[in-house]
Amino acid sequence: MALYMRSGATKAAPVRISSLAVLPLENLSKDPDQEYFADGMTDELITDLAKIGSLRVISRNSVMPYKGKHKSIPEIGRELNVDAVVEGTVMRSENRVRIRAQLIEARTDRHIWAQAYEGDVRDVLKLQDQVAQAIATEIKGKLAPAEKVHLTSAKEIRPDAYEADLRGFYELHKHGAAGTFLPVGNEIEKAIKFFQQALSIDPDDALAYAGLADAYYDQSTFFRAPLEVMPKAKAAATKAIQLDESQAEAHASLGYVRLTFDWDWA
């Protein structure tokens, strides 16, 4: 494995950052079919940074409306009420991935830190962890042992399975962004097929099970009878957690099922 980094950090007066927004990473490949990959990298970076204690990270749903928009950083900072913003780019070329990220003080639009990372697509989770760890260290100075564990535990992936996962979540998020009045089985059914494809490649893919749990739960809201799909959501979420206890999406889905279907309010 070979991972390359180039730093462009500049030293200046320290800035206290307690809240952060990760803007949608720009797809530099200019291939619209690669948007799912850039969005997936954005999601993973948000998830990683949200594991840092004392740092409030804005949700995906709040930052994705800024995709493709050309607003100033101070304006975005005011609208989201954050101290800093992360923006960056993703370039994928065959089996290589290059991620460039920069941390910007929202109020002044001053660049605090910038760095580029490059590696094999099989190591993309490690690249993401390195980006998140560098940002977190810049903000906090020193990470707690548990935070370091969270940001250094990424494993090598099966590229084809991970790609299917990202495509599945891309379809699932399109459904959410479009609202609830969609033809039955549209984006959600596509997402389910991608997650099932991932599991056919890697039967122990916790992310795919977490995606299935989300998809089945979403189906129960308007498109399928709860008795048909909620048990599937519960089973998928449980399996995801068994494979990877850190899967936040799976924990959330399991909680939704227990609250709305099992009526377990304990």
Rank of each mutant, 00 (worst) to 15 (best):
K193T: 12
A250D: 05
G8S: 08
L103K: 04
H150C: 10
R92K: 14
S153I: 07
G176K: 01
P14T: 02
Y217W: 11
A13M: 10
L49T: 08
K148S: 07
R224H: 12
R60C: 02
D33A: 13
S246C: 03
I76M: 12
H70K: 13
E189H: 10
V82R: 05
T89M: 12
K155A: 13
I76C: 07
F261M: 12
S62F: 09
A225G: 01
A106Y: 06
V229E: 03
Y4L: 11
A2Q: 09
T10L: 13
D244P: 03
I157C: 01
A266T: 12
A9C: 11
R107H: 14
E35S: 14
R60E: 05
E245A: 15
K142N: 09
N27M: 02
T221K: 13
A250H: 04
P203Q: 05
L182H: 09
V184G: 00
I157E: 06
Q130K: 11
R56Q: 12
S200E: 10
A134E: 07
E79C: 02
K193D: 10
I192N: 00
I201R: 08
K142W: 01
A2S: 12
D165L: 03
L55D: 02
P231E: 00
Q242F: 08
R100K: 14
R158Q: 13
A132C: 06
D120T: 08
R158S: 09
A50I: 00
M230L: 15
R122Y: 05
N27K: 03
P231V: 03
E75F: 14
R110N: 14
A9M: 09
I112Y: 09
S29R: 07
V85Q: 10
D244C: 08
G185P: 12
V149T: 10
Y4G: 01
A177C: 00
S62C: 11
E147M: 04
Q133H: 06
W263C: 10
E187L: 01
W113I: 10
A13S: 14
E171Q: 11
A210I: 03
R16K: 14
T47K: 11
H70P: 02
S19E: 07
I201Y: 09
T260D: 15
A21M: 12
V149C: 00
M230W: 01
A134Q: 09
D43F: 00
E147D: 09
S18T: 13
R6F: 14
K148A: 04
A225D: 13
S72H: 04
A21T: 07
L254T: 02
L25Q: 05
A191E: 01
E249L: 05
L227A: 13
S19G: 04
I58Q: 03
Q196R: 08
E105W: 05
L103G: 07
D244F: 03
D31N: 12
L23C: 10
Y216A: 05
S29E: 08
L243Q: 06
P74Q: 14
Q102W: 02
V184K: 15
A225C: 03
